[in-house]
Design a binder for these strands. Sequence first.
RNA 1: GGCUCCGUGGCGCAAUUGUAUAGCGCAUCAGAUUUCGGCUCUGAGGGUUGGGGGUUAGAAUCCCUCCGGGGUCACCA
Length: 631
Amino acid sequence: MENKIKQLLVSKAVEFFGTTIEEKSIQFQVTRKEFEGDFTLVVFPFAKLWKMSPQDAANRMGEIVLNAFEEIESYNVIQGFLNLCLSNAYWKSVLTEIDKDTHFGIATPDSKGTVLVEYSSPNTNKPLHLGHLRNNFLGYSVAEILKANGHKVVKTQIINDRGIHICKSMLAWERFSPLNENGERETPENTGLKGDKLVGRYYVAFDKYFNEEAKSIIAKWVQGDFEGFSEHVINEYKKFSLAKEGKDEKAQADLDAKIKDLAKNETSLLRDAKEMLVKWEARDPQTYLLWSTMNGWVYEGFATTYEAMGVNFDRLYYESETYLLGKELVTEGLDKGVFFKKEDGSVWVDLTADGMDEKLLLRGDGTAVYMTQDLGTALDRKKDFPDLEGVVYTVGNEQDYHFKVLFLVLKKLGYAWADKCYHLSYGMVDLPSGKMKSREGTVVDADDLMNEVVQSAKEMTSERGHLEGMSEDEKENLFRQIGMGGLKYYLLKVDPKKRMMFNPEESIELNGNTGPFIQYAHARINSLLLKAGEMNSFESGVLGSDEKEILRVLAQYTNVIKEAGKEYSPALLANYAFELVKAFNHYYQAVPILIEKDLATRDLRLVLSKNVSKVIASALSLLGIQAPLKM
RNA sequence: GGCUCCGUGGCGCAAUUGUAUAGCGCAUCAGAUUUCGGCUCUGAGGGUUGGGGGUUAGAAUCCCUCCGGGGUCACCA
């Protein structure tokens, strides 16, 4: 409707007003609740253009629109805002249209190009935590939203299965795992631990012993014992410790940190881990076996967690398979003169002309770094999907700089498609107690959290839900749907870009702006429809202002999906679903439905309710949330 | 320090392609509905949108500046 009016006004502007007008100067907005009308035209720009009062300009336009469209029933002007009212017949036709369309709001599948959505991509050394939940829910939801916008979507993740960090836990497991009575080291089988948790334990162990060793080295240095250390290191240490004198506390702490880094580099543990990485890159069989075994444990553990999250992937990329391609790219860049080599053999790119620093692309010992493999992965994907229309990287905002560099380097190498890459950068999740810090044990484990929310959904629903006639399996499934629905909604309702607060108590709330509140409204409508039974034509039913209120919200759904796709923001859909539910609850309270005497009106209200429930379920599914029929 | 993101009632958030009296949830208070201390609904109190300046008919939104907070600036990933 808005578009029709725009077209008319633009095309006939000279005839009507004697001037041309630009399409973008015609702005519509939804009419505020306190005024009469369905949508509003902002006339200030025209008042200026025609040098008349906003009041007169609005009246003039109102008259034209009223005469041109039979759908427009009336208009009113308040303070330069032209409020337009649509006719009942128009609204009824809207209801008919929405009702006919089983996939209302959803674009034709595969009508647009392929987009790759990367999400999750965790460090395989650490179990997944709350931050990963936000990442996974976001990535999954954005993928679904892009699909709803007609895109062909490939959900993907890059498995960070190689690198120094992996060698650290491998080494720690070999060195520090206790042996059981059969002389075996710890495994998921003989401990009963989830694989990712077991490997995570050794990653932590490495860090612990690593720090201890560094400390003992510093202790030696303090006593003046420098035996076995290189001239360079000794000099550096002396330089730092001398500089400490007379400095304030903060400067001293900085210097201490530098000394610690220096010592860390001298530890046998780090040296051995580095050696292991070189061996791995040389495909040493023993190292390779250990690597594949421990990675296998992690994958198994992650698979369980992903299933609980309800997310999935269409295509996996393994860093161990793409990093070589990255190395080739580095060679290519050297040949092209885009990169340069330092004396020690390390390869760098100079981005100072673009306002950034020099960036390492390959270590002096020839092993790959993070950037190397990301370059390789990007290229690999382009090879697999030549017609790629976009790549979305769902990665936390602490890596903003990394992605800026990545896209820029790709461009410098001459890959124009770098422009189609998008970093979906999301904010951290804070706890009421502050930041999550693994060192302080304040990390919220993903598995634990999911179990908790399902458990509390069970407690709350068992108390007051409508569970009669459900089997145990059905009940368990329902608790999972409610618990996970609450958690997902909680994490998705906030603008992805923003840092957010995770309050465990609020996340399991059932009232207010929560997932279960929305699910509840959906379930209630369905029990209403169940009771209603057969429906007949609603053609002659009476459509009042309460119905129009709901239809107005329903009609926006198509635009919300588009906007959410454009902005990569599930939050828009979450907030929309909440708005819709609030509008419906209000309606439900104000208007009798089942007991309405006039059957056509009753059926009109039922059809309206049915479509509200349809849109709620649809919006929730784009958030990865299920909508149970009973709860 | 450089770069970058952010600052909205007590708390958590919305509105950021400028536009009417800055919305919503939680919490607080008063009511309605209800078989129900549940669910739902209605209403009330609570804001100079971090401070200051500017652009505009109009600024939470754009520009400048100051204050406060996060991230980042690794041969970690």
